[in-house]
Amino acid sequence: MIQSVLSRLTGRPSSARVEREDALRHLQLMLAGGHDPTVQSVAGALGVAPDRAAAVLADLERRECVVFQAGRVTLTPTGQAYATHIIRAHRLWEQHLAQSSGVPPEQWHAHADRAEHRLSPDDVAALTERLGNPTHDPHGDPIPPPHGAVVPHHGMPLDELPVDQTARVTHVEDEPAMVFAELVMLGLYPGAIVRVVERGPHALGLWVDGEHVTLTPLMVHNVSVAPLAAPPAPAPVRLSALPIGRSATVAGLSPACRGTERRRLLDLGFVPGTVITAEMVSPSGDPTAYAVRGALIALRRTQARHVLIQPAPPEAEATS
């Protein structure tokens, strides 16, 4: 996140308020991470000269958002609340984009960088409610509660995960956008279950949700994981792979499927243990209709990929 703060703000109209808010955000994230922010670090985060950064900090002090104590910059309670609002707006907006907009993942961050300055506290409250009160943004960063503290995500770097150890992805860094886009394409998102297969000098072989992928060191560097005590029982497969006429038992929903979409699938009966049958494909190729608990539900392939199944033995063919 820190790194992302540094490289943001290119090509955006600069206004005093945007600068102030970006500076507050930077200060809050640095302090939360246990670092000491400086005029230089603020200048880097804002992409401006140190003089300008110092002016912004002076402005913030005048507004009683920051105080200088013994050469160190700290946030006042007002400044903290303000910064928390900005971070909250940013992460919620990313979550909103991930859940319901269809904006491609590598653009989430840039969109949220603009939205965070636009959303009022009322907007943020309404957004939280609409999103079903998420706890994390789509990269795995915790969304701070309105009056709570900003805490960094936890997890160990994927670099350090031993071979054959199963782990859950906790965080996928969203900067640089190119690397992030590749990680998304390979199916790496917070919550994905991974296992290191082999570790070479220039590549890492990895199982991700039942698929084998290869990561470059740069990509590995941007992923954090939490080791799992016991690997989950037989690796689930995606529903999109179920041939027409066959049945299977739902194992769960992929963590990549969030918010409204997830709830809708649960509402429709895609809960663990349900037996479903692939019934027919649309003549235009995409949605496939599945028999679920006595009803016929059509899902697009992108959604069927989010339902994980255990292939059922043939005698479980009875559907309704």
């Binding site: 269809g102 949605p287 009803a295 016929l296 959604q303």
Partner: peptide, 13 residues
């Protein structure tokens, strides 16, 4: 602009 949002359709009997 934007990509397609999710979709599920119930085919009633």
């Amino acid at each position: 602009k934007g990509e397609v949002s999710t979709f599920s359709l119930e085919l009633p009997p």
